[in-house]
Design a protein around this nucleic acid. Structure first.
Lengths: 275, 275
DNA sequence: GCCGCTTTGTGCCTGCGTTCACAAATGAAC
DNA sequence: GTTCATTTGTGAACGCAGGCACAAAGCGGC
């Protein structure tokens, strides 16, 4: 079962300006799953939706499964996989259930099948060409990742505004000028743009990427990007990450003014504690 | 997002292992707030708890507010700030309310006060020394950020395993060998460790950081780290981010097999549009 | 062929986070 | 001093995600 092509999703989650939110996921984005081939008479709603949070975890499972496969494992139980991924086994099973039923009760899951299904749902069966904009320290690092972590994400274009960089190959690809973003992206069918420019340039770069037909943007610049409805943005913000960690340090320091602790992050649900 | 935390579930059953989850936030981590040193008779409202998701947003607000302050703004309304941050204004107000009541009804918030309060709650009033482990492409980029985005996070130690790198200064700081992590971290009072090593080395490095007294870890390696309860881990996973984007591309392709869309997806505030 | 063990798949419950909507508070105008 | 326009702060409703626990479903042994 499960062909491709989904039928509409009744959801229609309202999106707002988006572009924000680094760490936490948007809530309830829920997206449609490929689902079955529709032939009309659908008993009930076939198309299922996958919570964004689950999607993120699926990516993690995929990596672990790939590693397992490489080591010759052919099957895994939800228990195994869940501990490896650091999640609750029930949650893992629920996540996998979004893919369909590919497990065998009493046995577990076939690693190869799972890998294939996750790749299908995540859209990894086809390549997504990546462009990196801003070849500074970070951009350099990204460009050199070479094909980017995991296969399926070949870097095929690099952009910068610095004249000295134009034409210089980085990681095998010559750097092009910012002005050519729309043209080059369109030509090379870039689908993912990575912004690693200074904050001031980010929005402009973003606009050009969109103009070039880029559908998804990974933004490392500490700016909230404004994009049209149909463009997906994810943000990775170093400063925010550090500040969140800072918060936890501070919290801990406050909770244990006397240096004595225990508890700390424990708690069944709410930390609870009084100073 | 992300990530993080992982507390919960006091169940003796399975251990949580934490360290996982990149993007989405766990739910309800809630942590205690510093609580001002107010002298005034504070009815109650002492220790409140701040959802992790809110903490992440506060960091974003902080940056926007800082920028506003630099441009001479002295007050902002929740509406202004919320649109700048790309969030719902009600959410913003609730987030700010975790700090205490620092707004003036009918007027708005005083930028300077807000900045101060957010810094206080995020623990930015003191410096958090950072160590970067793994001086490869990414590590290099991180080390060169110089003081890291935003002040308050000085990089004070660099580590790598490559003999050719040991002693070489990067961004002004000489690289030390991995073996010296515990010692150096303890000596220099490092509180945040950044792991930018290959996946295979990550866990070992992590253990040494913990041994050196590091309380928080920012992990760029695609591995689920095992850490003691009292250590906080946040993970930034490039591959996962890309795969999530890939998922959205795929989803979109499935939803509009005919290139027709409609389904304008309104928006709480943003634009509408139909193609 | 039947029984029992193992592991999946999921219905249900709980709880957090988001959003709405409104009362309270404040400054300005008169 | 009173009223009006504004904007905050928050109680309550809602919805999603997480976790538990169990029924369903294979597999192997007898």
């Amino acid at each position: 079962m499960v062909a491709q092509r989904g039928r509409r999703n009744g959801a229609a989650a309202h999106k707002r300006t988006r572009g924000g939110a680094t760490p936490d996921a948007d809530n309830a984005p829920t997206a449609e799953i490929p689902a079955v081939a529709e032939n009309g008479a659908d008993p009930e709603v076939r198309a299922k939706s996958i919570p964004e949070a689950a999607v993120a975890r699926l990516a993690v499972y995929l990596r672990i499964l790939s590693a397992m496969a490489e080591q010759g494992a052919t099957t895994v139980s939800s228990e195994e996989l869940s501990t490896a991924a650091g999640v609750n086994s029930a949650k893992l099973r629920k996540d996998l259930s979004y893919l369909g039923s590919y497990g065998t009760r009493g046995v577990g899951y076939e690693v190869a099948v799972l890998v294939g299904q996750i790749e299908r749902v995540l859209g990894l069966t086809r390549q997504h060409k990546v462009a990196v904009v801003g070849i500074g320290n970070l951009g350099h690092a990204l460009a050199n990742y070479g094909g980017f972590p995991g296969r399926g994400f070949p870097v095929e274009a690099l952009f910068d505004i610095d004249p000295d960089l134009i034409g210089v190959p980085v990681g095998g690809i010559p750097v092009t000028h910012l002005d050519d973003i729309p043209q080059v992206c369109a030509d090379r069918q870039i689908s993912i743009g990575v912004i690693a420019t200074p904050p001031a340039a980010a929005q402009t770069v973003c606009d050009r990427l969109v103009e070039g037909g880029v559908q998804c943007i990974l933004n490392f610049a500490p700016v909230v990007l404004q994009v049209p409805e149909h463009v997906e943005v994810r943000k990775v913000d170093l400063a925010v990450e550090l500040q969140i960690l800072s918060f936890h340090v501070a919290r801990r320091a406050d909770n244990e003014p006397n240096g004595k602790v225990a508890e700390s992050t424990v708690a069944g649900n709410g930390a609870v504690l009084q100073s």
